[in-house]
Design a binder for these strands. Structure first.
Lengths: 228, 228
DNA sequence: AATATTCGATAGTAATGCTATTATATTTGC
DNA sequence: GCAAATATAATAGCATTACTATCGAATATT
């Protein structure tokens, strides 16, 4: 696993960046430190000027990598979904039984990221928190449609499509495989947010994870050989 | 219904505004026109200066009603949830059968707002769109916890609690009533967003509304007299 | 008629979100 | 080992944003 991950490069739409941040030390620092800063101060307060000061570099240098902070957020979240997709494919690949496969998929995408895999400059634990707190801001904009056309959300869409297909493999008659898949992904982020800030709005907590909730939700919705 | 609605005043936490916008003509115009503008240009591009120009009033006058545009968003969304709560209570009040009651509740909170009830200066159709596109920005901030303590989200929380209780009335053994309730509310906003911008991520559309999806999801999760 | 209250107008400030230019490193290709 | 290409740093500048403060005029209240 480690070796595989060492050589993993997540393919991100080239239009998202001006210059590939993976291509230089400064680019990597921008990604690395922006994750820490956005996590600490939130996306709204985060600016390229502050990032420049933080990494001892210049604001204008950062603009050579990303047009603006919105694009940086698109980059970071794309990276996260690509990373998650990789884990999903890797972990479910060898599972033949559709139910078991879907169960594993739910587990992968709904669990909290607990360990930084240390194979890159990206801190996945913090990035997971950024995705929970900031992802929806990347698409809740007036530019969604044009950015969608440009392919800025392909990785996320592919991930939903993969889960949707797994749902179909379990129950070909189910009417809402895509809605269910998007509910799992987006709903999981939401439940994790609720655990942190609105405990009264969720039943999930440390010992009853979102994974249990979504597993229950999904397998009660699908007719399987054993229960239908 | 009309008469009841005429006299309806949605009780919004006084800390959200500096001066009650319902208390003056200017206040009402601020609310009224901000809904149109946020809908047109999105919350990010919307500013008090632009609103001032739009309503032929002064920026500083708007600040006498709301500290900043974030508070205005909190006000608008609170108003929306209060309005929805009213409809929920009104429509489910007389229903005795728990399943039927829950079914009705799902219908109320997941449907798209299609008509402006015309009893106030608030355009509910546009406000519904604002909630779909902007609501999560009101809580995905670094200030959530303190604002939650101040009671800025009470209406929304009460709405989730109401639905959660209805779920419990249908199946007292179900382990995730609050998570399910929050999934219905938040997931519904998300499905409506997907219908508008990411059709491949949802199975819902004009003739298969989110209501059908969530009804299916909920009643498959709950053990009821008839199916369990 | 006196007095609050409200509102409009103007001004000002620090920060944001950039862009442009120039100078200095650093890498690389020969 | 040197020149050319490229990358980065430093500085400046600009329009806009998100306010705050002050003052006077209009309006409502008693």
């Amino acid at each position: 696993m480690e070796q595989l991950l060492q050589s993993l490069k997540i393919g991100i739409n080239e239009k998202i960046y001006v210059k590939d941040p993976q291509s230089s030390a400064l680019g990597k620092r921008i990604v690395e430190e922006s994750i820490l800063m956005i996590n600490d101060m939130g996306f709204e307060s985060f600016t390229f000027r502050k990032l420049g000061v933080h990494i001892g570099s210049n604001e204008s240098s950062i603009y050579r990598y990303f047009e603006n902070k919105h694009k940086l957020l698109l980059y970071l979240t794309s990276w996260y979904w690509g990373w998650l997709e990789y884990q999903l494919v890797f972990s479910t690949n060898s599972i033949a039984d559709p139910k078991e496969k879907l169960q594993k998929a739910i587990e992968i995408v709904t669990r909290a990221t607990k360990e930084d895999s240390a194979f890159s400059h990206v801190n996945e634990v913090l990035l997971n928190k950024i995705v929970i707190n900031e992802y929806s801001k990347s698409y809740l904009t007036k530019e969604v449609d044009s950015e969608n056309k440009e392919g800025y959300f392909v990785i996320y869409k592919r991930l939903v499509a993969r889960i949707s297909k797994m749902v179909e493999m379990v129950d070909g008659d189910y009417k809402f495989p895509s809605s269910l898949a998007s509910t799992i992904l987006e709903g999981s982020l939401h439940q994790h947010f609720l655990i942190d800030h609105f405990t009264s709005l969720t039943d999930c907590h440390e010992h009853l994870a979102p994974t249990e909730y979504f597993t229950d939700l999904v397998f009660n919705s699908l007719k399987t050989d054993s229960n239908g």
